[in-house]
Simulated assay, not measured.
Amino acid sequence: MGVVPVTRSEETMPYSPTRSLADTVVAVTGASAGIGAATAHALVGAGARVAVSARREERLEQLVEELGKDNVVPVVGDVRDPAHNEALVAAAVQRWGRLDTMVANAGIGAYGGILDLGDDQLTEMVETNYLGTVWSVRSAVRRFREQGEGGDVVIVSSVAGFRGGADEAVYAGTKHAQVGLAGSLDRELRAEGTRVTLICPAGTATEFAIGAGRTEGSPELDDYLRPQDVAHAIRVVLEQPRSVRTTVWQMWSMQQQS
């Protein structure tokens, strides 16, 4: 397949720096809190419809209440299960007839030396952060190819994927894996009209950060990015004209050391 061509009408239309997300359909994993929930809010605010997944059913139901049943369809499950990712895509297609974007956001983290964490905890983290991303992407790409129009894959990774800290080697390894996956996918899928974007925030003040070694109310969190900062970045890359793609976006707050 070749690169999706620009039509004559598109060439003669006045240039617009953004594309509308109205009525586009987006799947978001890890949407029960933090970046995932903020992304659902941002995209619905831009006119999109979202299929959201997470393990916590009550949190997803809360998201439906906040954003409206016409805008959100929830799918409860574990991103480590390939069938769950297929069900998420199927729910979006059943409700709205198509899928335009997959935001692979689900992830977990833990801080500690290489011998400090248990086998089960490390296995869950590796499977969630890397294999969960792979299964999400596969399900989305399968649908994009059926539709024949390309789409968007957004992988929420971390600056740790480029240089992990001394107390996060395994976590950083999963993020390095996402970086490698995204770069290879970009080279594989661009010719089909599918854009692959890697969003790499530094520390973000979410339940994720609190549960991974920091405590609620920690002064350190005051200097972190907000979930809405990352959600804004996701919205921005999706609103780019289809002729443009952002492959990697690293981001820090003004207070954080890069």
Score class of each variant (00 low, 15 high):
residue 222 D to T: 14
residue 147 Q to A: 14
residue 45 G to D: 13
residue 92 A to G: 08
residue 191 A to T: 14
residue 67 L to R: 00
residue 139 S to H: 00
residue 42 A to S: 15
residue 51 A to I: 07
residue 238 L to K: 07
residue 209 A to K: 00
residue 203 G to W: 10
residue 209 A to L: 14
residue 188 E to W: 11
residue 221 L to D: 01
residue 25 V to L: 08
residue 73 V to Y: 08
residue 48 A to R: 03
residue 232 H to G: 14
residue 87 A to V: 03
residue 152 D to G: 04
residue 66 E to D: 15
residue 233 A to T: 12
residue 234 I to K: 09
residue 107 G to D: 00
residue 138 R to H: 08
residue 113 G to Y: 14
residue 127 E to D: 10
residue 101 T to I: 10
residue 220 E to L: 15
residue 30 G to R: 03
residue 140 A to K: 00
residue 18 T to R: 09
residue 231 A to D: 03
residue 184 S to P: 00
residue 199 I to M: 08
residue 178 Q to H: 03
residue 95 R to P: 11
residue 152 D to L: 05
residue 217 G to E: 09
residue 145 R to F: 11
residue 98 R to E: 13
residue 169 A to R: 06
residue 36 G to I: 02
residue 116 D to T: 04
residue 256 Q to N: 09
residue 233 A to C: 10
residue 61 E to P: 06
residue 112 G to I: 13
residue 38 A to R: 00
residue 221 L to S: 12
residue 227 P to E: 05
residue 160 A to R: 00
residue 179 V to A: 10
residue 194 T to Q: 01
residue 74 P to R: 00
residue 106 A to F: 01
residue 60 L to I: 05
residue 186 D to G: 15
residue 75 V to F: 09
residue 26 V to Y: 02
residue 88 L to A: 05
residue 38 A to T: 05
residue 83 A to G: 11
residue 153 V to E: 02
residue 197 T to E: 02
residue 252 W to T: 09
residue 139 S to G: 02
residue 120 D to W: 03
residue 149 E to N: 11
residue 113 G to P: 13
residue 41 H to Q: 13
residue 82 P to S: 06
residue 149 E to I: 11
residue 7 T to Q: 08
residue 138 R to N: 07
residue 114 I to L: 15
residue 33 A to T: 12
residue 210 I to N: 05
residue 87 A to S: 13
residue 97 G to A: 06
residue 244 V to T: 13
residue 175 K to V: 07
residue 184 S to K: 05
residue 171 Y to I: 08
residue 241 P to R: 06
residue 215 T to C: 03
residue 72 V to W: 01
residue 190 R to Q: 14
residue 198 L to T: 02
residue 92 A to W: 03
residue 198 L to G: 00
residue 185 L to Y: 09
residue 255 Q to I: 00
residue 252 W to E: 04
residue 139 S to Q: 00
residue 21 L to H: 06
residue 51 A to W: 07
residue 159 V to D: 07
residue 118 G to H: 01
residue 80 R to D: 04
residue 186 D to Y: 08
residue 85 N to S: 12
residue 89 V to P: 00
residue 224 Y to P: 07
residue 129 N to T: 11
residue 145 R to H: 13
residue 164 G to M: 09
residue 234 I to Y: 14
residue 44 V to C: 08
residue 176 H to E: 13
residue 99 L to S: 04
residue 171 Y to L: 09
residue 64 V to I: 05
residue 57 E to A: 15
residue 111 Y to L: 14
residue 214 R to D: 06
residue 144 F to Y: 15
residue 217 G to H: 01
residue 198 L to I: 05
residue 16 S to H: 08
residue 199 I to D: 01
residue 50 V to R: 04
residue 31 A to T: 05
residue 40 A to N: 03
residue 42 A to W: 07
residue 76 V to A: 07
residue 171 Y to G: 09
